[in-house]
Amino acid sequence: MAERNTPVENEKKEPGLDKNLERLDAELEIMERHSPELDSMEEEEREALKKRDREYKDEHLHSVPRPRKHVR
């Protein structure tokens, strides 16, 4: 039968695990304290990426220039 790793066994194998968990907890606490600023920054980045993507597509993916599109 396959062996299962219990939390006690994992601690023996990785002694730095507690240190990493403490670091992650501290980083999560910082992110929670500054969540409104992070949300606004994320929204700004998302809008900038949308704008850049739209401009790229407008410049490179339209096969016929717009002024001559419906002229016959």
Rank of each mutant, 00 (worst) to 15 (best):
E47G: 04
E43M: 04
N10D: 08
Y56N: 13
K51A: 04
D18L: 08
P65T: 04
K51E: 07
P15G: 02
M1E: 01
M31Q: 11
R52Y: 03
D58M: 04
D39E: 10
A26G: 14
E29M: 10
R52K: 15
M1P: 00
E11Y: 09
L61F: 06
E14I: 09
L24P: 03
K69S: 06
S35E: 15
E29C: 07
R4Y: 05
E59I: 14
R23E: 12
E43A: 10
K12H: 13
H62F: 11
E32A: 08
A2T: 12
H60A: 03
T6C: 05
L28Q: 10
E47C: 03
N5R: 09
G16F: 10
R23K: 13
P7S: 06
P65W: 00
R68K: 05
S63Y: 06
P36G: 04
N20G: 12
R68S: 09
R23W: 08
K57Q: 09
E44F: 02
A26C: 10
S63K: 02
R23N: 11
M31C: 07
P7V: 00
V64Q: 11
K69N: 04
E59D: 14
N5F: 07
L61E: 10
P15I: 01
M1F: 04
D58I: 08
P67F: 04
R23Q: 11
K50T: 01
E3P: 03
E22I: 01
E55M: 00
D18E: 08
L24G: 06
S35A: 14
E55R: 00
D53I: 01
K69E: 12
L28A: 12
Y56D: 05
N20L: 13
E32T: 11
E37Q: 12
E43G: 08
A26S: 15
N20S: 11
H62P: 00
R66H: 09
